[in-house]
Design a protein around this nucleic acid. Structure first.
Lengths: 345, 345
DNA sequence: CCGACTTGTGCAAACGCTTCCAGTCGGAAC
DNA sequence: GTTCCGACTGGAAGCGTTTGCACAAGTCGG
């Protein structure tokens, strides 16, 4: 009914200025609630803008101000439940802050030069960037810190940059200890490399936690009980087959992700093993499907992580907010049907 | 090592022009491989640009050209496996086309005015938009067609706009017929409304397919066997409890999504029913976890849908490509462990 | 050998804002 | 009654591109 908002050209700031009877400079100031604008004028301008359905052209204002009001998000993959959950959290916060989100995937290395270099999708396009699971490392962080746009790193603990992560070592320890407390002594570990090109610290940290828990109970580690599951369902399936069909199968398995644990469940079904009767199983993440399948796991606040990352970014851009500190997030053991006391057989 | 690419201001087009000994106009043309530029000049400009690590400022070029080189994607939720898979496909295509992706969620109605109106995140920001599962309907499509930016609609079959979807009716028919062929006669349907505010045609279409299959075998529909599962795991769990604890439980259930089927599996476990022994189960989607849990399902090419949607958008923007046509995508029945012949009890 | 094109290039005007600088005006301080 | 100051406002210079138009130098059929 409103008509007008067809393909016709949109109202510009001069139209608003004309209608309000002021200069464009004043319109610009009034609309952004700058000081030194009389209340009456401000009101008049706002009215005019509303009447004209005026919205400042983002590109023009970016060009003029040098600020893009966009924050970039870089992740190795978009498809994982984890990543999309993070993005959802980020998006949630950004919506309120009137910031745009520019998403990009870089399966390869997180080399700062690649990202900000001549062909980098992000260079000159964003005011700040969120790196999700890119595993930049302290060296990469130093490199990134030099770049103009501030960065917030999720999933990793860094000194040089603002970062945000859970305590992976602790999580793994919790999971493993849970199995130990149930009496298990032969405990398999399915982990792996998250993305081929990046050397993530996550698997290392979780392995460390696993080993620490074992050590705490004076259980010897066994090489054959540590297999790479690639962080995929299929990888988990393969790894567990290898383990369970081997000479000395474990009575319990800790997977570094719930998805790998799903693969283990598949293996169990295929081999006719009952979970937790013949095999106790615990994952890591608390994937939405985990509850349905009764998978015990370590719960981490993924969405919250996205929200918090965005929040930190917003604060940095606003001037307040430390530009480098690590923010830990809590985790919790969720015990469900897939873990039980070791059978006495 | 390259130095220079620190916080220092970036090279601009005039720097390149100076270095190459030509005018900025020529640089602009040369860099974008426009005609009417001598090969030698073009080479010289490219060299200069490379030496200076020059990248055209996106905002300036957008402002000047009026083209944003950005396409917007709107979806009711980002978190679902389905949506992220689509996005991954889109992103994949866009990367090559040098287009940016601007993502936004609008849980509410897909009202064109909301999206493109004064407060619409997308207005004036994108060259085109992809609507994923927004269920605009023919009326909304007409509205959208009036707007400047072209739109491609995924997950729905439209006349007025370019659209892309599978044959939902057929898929549901395939699934139901599969159960019928296994001898089942009491077949439950768990479906629902995808998002509260939008009246999607998907559930309706799938319901129609289900009913058609039943009718094909002269099986009477039963109201108590059709329950809303909200398209969530928990919803599927609740719906199936209601059905299975009812007076006359089904011997098989068709869920309109794999995730709801996961919820049914949970119910089965809770009630001590075996799948497929006591209950056959088939879903819809082919969720990545479905294989692991042996869930029979209707497979749809989600990622391909994203790719194709992006492709269509690119074509439209490039000038060739029909601006309104429906593109169907194929589906397939995947029979796994969760469906079996009806037990003779 | 001459207009009519074609090709290659430069000039300069947008594009729609933001923001520095300067100016007006009323009132407080002297 | 000056002078000074602060609150408002306007003028205009960018911001870094793109692109219409003009122009110089060939190219070519007639």
């Amino acid at each position: 009914m409103a008509g007008r908002d067809s393909a016709a050209t949109h109202a510009s700031i001069v139209d608003v200025a004309a209608r309000a009877g002021v200069s464009v400079a004043t319109v610009s100031r009034a609309l952004r609630d700058y000081p030194h604008v009389a209340d009456a004028t401000r009101a008049r301008v706002h009215d005019a803008a509303r009447d004209l359905h005026y919205v400042a052209d983002a590109n023009a204002s970016r060009l003029a101000s040098g600020r893009s009001n966009t924050i970039g998000l870089l992740a190795p993959i978009l498809t994982s439940w984890y990543t999309s959950e993070v993005i959802a959290g980020v998006e949630e916060m950004l919506q309120d802050a009137e910031l745009d989100l520019l998403i990009s995937t870089r399966p390869g290395s997180p080399d700062a030069r690649r990202v900000f270099g001549p062909d980098g999708a992000f260079r000159q396009r964003v005011d700040g960037m969120l790196l999700v699971d890119m595993f930049v490392g302290e060296a990469g962080a130093t490199e990134l810190a030099k770049v103009a746009a501030p960065a917030v790193v999720l999933g990793e603990s860094l000194q040089t940059l603002t970062s945000l992560s859970i305590d992976n070592r602790l999580g793994a320890e919790l999971a493993t200890r849970h199995l130990l407390e149930l009496g298990h002594r032969r405990i398999g570990l399915i982990g792996g490399v998250i993305t081929p090109a990046s050397q993530s610290s996550v698997p290392d940290d979780r392995t460390a936690g696993y080993l620490a828990a074992l050590a705490g109970q004076r259980v010897r580690r066994e090489r054959s009980l540590q297999v790479d599951g690639l962080f995929t369902i299929e990888g988990g399936r393969r790894a567990s087959r290898q383990m369970l069909l081997g000479p000395n199968p474990p009575s319990a398995i800790f997977c570094m992700s719930d998805e790998m644990a799903f693969g283990v469940m598949q293996t169990a079904r295929e081999l006719g093993l009952s979970v937790p009767g013949d095999l106790s199983l615990i994952g890591f993440d608390d994937h939405p499907a985990s509850e349905a399948f009764g998978l015990s796991t370590i719960q981490q606040p993924v969405r919250e992580m996205g929200r918090m990352g965005a929040r930190l970014m917003i604060d940095i851009l606003a001037g307040h907010g430390t530009s480098c500190a690590h923010h830990p997030l809590g985790i919790a053991l969720v015990s469900r049907a897939s873990t039980a006391a070791v059978s006495s057989t």
